[in-house]
């Protein structure tokens, strides 16, 4: 076989198609998760995953087949009562992301009164002495809460009220898109006719979690509309809207 062709095919064969791991190396990921209102934390499961995008097994035509994501569990442990965690992992050498998941739905130790927490981009942190030190994260419990809508001054318009909230998870990105995200995948709504004084929406949410509200006041056409974030009222143990 022509040497150039042989070298080309050998090169393709040597291209890694999956996550690989360093010999003689273990990593330690440690951090702290606390609830501002609780002194002790439950033993929530903590898992660490490595992921990367690799060309498919038909590697001769990566531009045709595209890439596939390879995701591996590399370590797991549980939260200690003081909220700290220490996870021993094997050491990926070609990963694009290291993701820490606390209380993943589907884990056998999942606790349904706590949200899941996704901390991605741990590999962007400095690795010192084979250790990644993750930042402290606050995590509140999931509670049953309510939104009370009260008609006070507006006696003529129909109110269409929507809320978006998240009762299941929280995301923190330590990578290039640094920041804490509050995805709001869940949705609820109500209508308050002019002859009604009050409406209550009950729902589950992460305590003190963000609730994004939007409303329209309608009276032969839209009179007013607005999108805003609602503040959690500790005394009411819920949210309140008056109009």
């Amino acid at each position: 076989m022509n040497r150039t062709v042989f070298t080309f095919f050998l090169g393709l064969l040597l291209i890694s198609c999956e996550l690989t791991y360093e010999d003689n190396r273990r990593l330690l990921l440690r951090g702290n998760i606390n609830d501002p209102e609780e002194s002790t934390m439950p033993d929530l499961p903590v898992e660490v995953y490595a992921s990367g995008h690799f060309i498919t097994p038909l590697f001769f035509f990566p531009f045709v087949n595209g890439t596939k994501e390879d995701v591996d569990l590399i370590g797991a442990s549980k939260l200690y009562p003081d909220g700290t965690y220490k996870i021993v992992t094997i050491s990926p050498e070609n990963e694009s992301n290291i993701l820490v998941i606390v209380n993943r739905q589907g884990n056998e130790d999942y606790k349904n009164d706590w949200p899941s927490l996704f901390i991605s981009g741990a590999n962007y942190l400095p690795l010192e002495d084979s250790t990644y030190d993750l930042p402290q994260v606050e995590l509140d419990k999931i509670i049953q809460t309510k939104l009370t809508i009260t008609r006070q001054t507006n006696l003529t318009d129909t109110l269409y009220f929507n809320i978006n909230y998240n009762s299941s998870y929280k995301e923190l990105d330590l990578g290039e898109a640094k920041g804490l995200y509050h995805p709001l995948p869940e949705y609820s709504s109500t209508i308050l006719d002019p002859d009604e004084d009050e409406a209550v929406i009950t729902f589950k949410n992460i305590k003190s979690g963000t609730v994004r509200a939007s409303y329209q006041l309608v009276n032969k056409g839209i009179v007013d509309e607005k999108i805003f974030e609602m503040e959690f009222d500790q005394e009411q143990n819920g949210y309140e809207f008056k109009f």
Binding site: N24, R26, L27, V88, D129, S130
Partner: peptide, 14 residues
């Protein structure tokens, strides 16, 4: 006596 490189607190352990 393995040549594993890891965090100082886990050195003897590994």
């Amino acid at each position: 006596f393995l040549s594993i490189d890891t965090a100082p607190e886990l050195t003897d352990y590994f």
